[in-house]
Design a protein around this nucleic acid. Sequence first.
DNA 1: ATTTAAGCGAGACGGTACGTCTGGTCTTTAT
DNA 2: ATAAAGACCAGACGTACCGTCTCGCTTAAAT
Lengths: 195, 195, 195, 195
Amino acid sequence: MDEPKKRGRQRSTVAETAVLKATMELLEDRPLSSVTAEDIASKAGVSKATLYKWWPNKSRIALDAFLAQMAEDVPIPDTGSARLDFLGQLKSAIRFYTSPRGRVLSQFIAEGRNDPELLKAFQERFQEPRRKAVRVSWERGVARGELRADIDAGTVIDLLFGPIVYRLMTEHGPLNDAAAEMLVEAVFSGITVKK
Amino acid sequence: MDEPKKRGRQRSTVAETAVLKATMELLEDRPLSSVTAEDIASKAGVSKATLYKWWPNKSRIALDAFLAQMAEDVPIPDTGSARLDFLGQLKSAIRFYTSPRGRVLSQFIAEGRNDPELLKAFQERFQEPRRKAVRVSWERGVARGELRADIDAGTVIDLLFGPIVYRLMTEHGPLNDAAAEMLVEAVFSGITVKK
Amino acid sequence: MDEPKKRGRQRSTVAETAVLKATMELLEDRPLSSVTAEDIASKAGVSKATLYKWWPNKSRIALDAFLAQMAEDVPIPDTGSARLDFLGQLKSAIRFYTSPRGRVLSQFIAEGRNDPELLKAFQERFQEPRRKAVRVSWERGVARGELRADIDAGTVIDLLFGPIVYRLMTEHGPLNDAAAEMLVEAVFSGITVKK
Amino acid sequence: MDEPKKRGRQRSTVAETAVLKATMELLEDRPLSSVTAEDIASKAGVSKATLYKWWPNKSRIALDAFLAQMAEDVPIPDTGSARLDFLGQLKSAIRFYTSPRGRVLSQFIAEGRNDPELLKAFQERFQEPRRKAVRVSWERGVARGELRADIDAGTVIDLLFGPIVYRLMTEHGPLNDAAAEMLVEAVFSGITVKK
DNA sequence: ATTTAAGCGAGACGGTACGTCTGGTCTTTAT
DNA sequence: ATAAAGACCAGACGTACCGTCTCGCTTAAAT
């Protein structure tokens, strides 16, 4: 590789890892707003200066911590049936969103309201890869002639994931396998009565 | 009436109105997190003590300010067609969400992550009445035989409004009349190819 | 008196007194540079915000603390003999400078090197009153015909107090009654051999 | 020569000189407290580690920088008149103290309040040689019968230099040739009226 | 008419987190 | 071995905002 191998002390991977790990553990316990930079620093055994040397603020540390423990690449199911593919994706999304680690996600969406940079980073590094995976399933279904070519992928993705995100944020409805199944059924068949 | 007419100086409606008005004006400019209690107090010509006498915290002032300027009751369209009813409701929701005043709404959902009380109040006083209006349309459609009786109203409401809230929170897709039409089309007809 | 009695909560004299007292106690133990604002706040049972509301920085708190425990007005001895007056003033200055509280004084002169505002305040509020008292003694001596009218008071004051301040700052010589007597003898009689 | 020529890279005299020069230039501009170790390192083109390898702390670098640019040995005037000798020494001291480089001196006295080691080093390496030179003049004057043998040299030195140091530290009076002359006149003749 | 129980504006206060800064140490690679 | 680069820790700094509190004034029902 063409790494020029910088002079001087190298960035401590130990410190970075410790920070991300400590942050994630704290976030599983309590909301980002109640985790302080000092909490992170002391739990990670790192100085606050180091935190602010590498990250612009607390939220970005949290985002990195969150992403670091996510699988690198998003699996794309291929059952041969678009419906089953989507159902699988929905169910696994729901399972993750409702896990201790996944709950953190709603914090980023919330924090994104006050921090456009964070929102952008979150979109690029978390949302986009996942939306892309769904898009692939969609295109396969269209290619197979199962799905309507006249609807755009973005609309469909939001149709499936919007309700889930909505429930994640406001907790007004169930988030479980049954919910996934109902959504998929409605989206696939439509809500109207067929003659 | 059964007002015992309390002794002493009465609560100043002038002050309350001024607070709600000032708050709303501030919220149209910048996010709740950057509006301070002092900002509100000084803009309203009111003391901070008065604020905290009547509201438990800043967010609840904001919520009251937001609700105060909303129409008392939610109109329920009745065109005779469930599809047109929903389309109208969606479009008007989108128009509101994207207005200066409507944008504030996302702040409450965000703030709700750290403040369960606020979330609850927001749900009861804002969400529920609107969801109820949609539910009425749904039931009319079912009664008319247009819509499937085997899908529950909650699922359908989230199917229509989830994508919009999702886009409101993360700004990843368009929020306009066209989006409303695409959503309604997909939800009504389903996404599969009919033979 | 015509104090219009300001509206709102009055400045807490309790807090102010506590701050000054705590600060002075800390300063008797260790140098200003090692006393932190937080030390003062916590020892005084006051918040850091209150500190910075009333004082621009730590040094000014220290100066106020120092001055608060000094006698309001400087006594001017009047023995009828300029020599005895000066000797008394010198001895009591030395006694104070070498006391735990007096040692703090050198901190202000030192800190004054980095903080012109502090130096100015220190001069006006501590030095000037004391120099004035000596000046009065000087003028009495001149009026009585004991002391030379052709030397200016400033020079004489510095001749008496310069050596003491010098020793206070660099600790290179004794600071006691004997030193005061030697200084006075030399200054009064001159250092040359009289025929 | 018999230097065993140690293995490895030799201590860079270039680096040392650069550090001292850079430090002195910085100190002529602004107080020691606002010159950071990093300022010195970067201006000297040297790493901070090198600084702390050769000097225990910032103040000691400054002291070395200050002393490096002073004449090695202090001239001892010998006009045959103690009064003229002292006057010359006083004037040249004042001229130096008020020069850009000389002003730095007050920083060491100030810093000495928090750093006894520094004070000690400053005394030994700067003060003592200068005091010794004055002491020699004093002894010559005593030997010639001009000056009183019953006053100790330390007292006289402080009588002459104390006022100057005092004015250097608190800037309350003039520091110039005229001041030197007034001091010498007062110290030599005494402040009392002779019959 | 007088009391008395609020309500209110002004603004001080304690608490607590923020993000910045500097001093001084340590690690890595280059000389 | 010594240097330059630069990451690192410790911990103080001064600022900001929250929500509470105290003060003295005003208002209006109850006496």
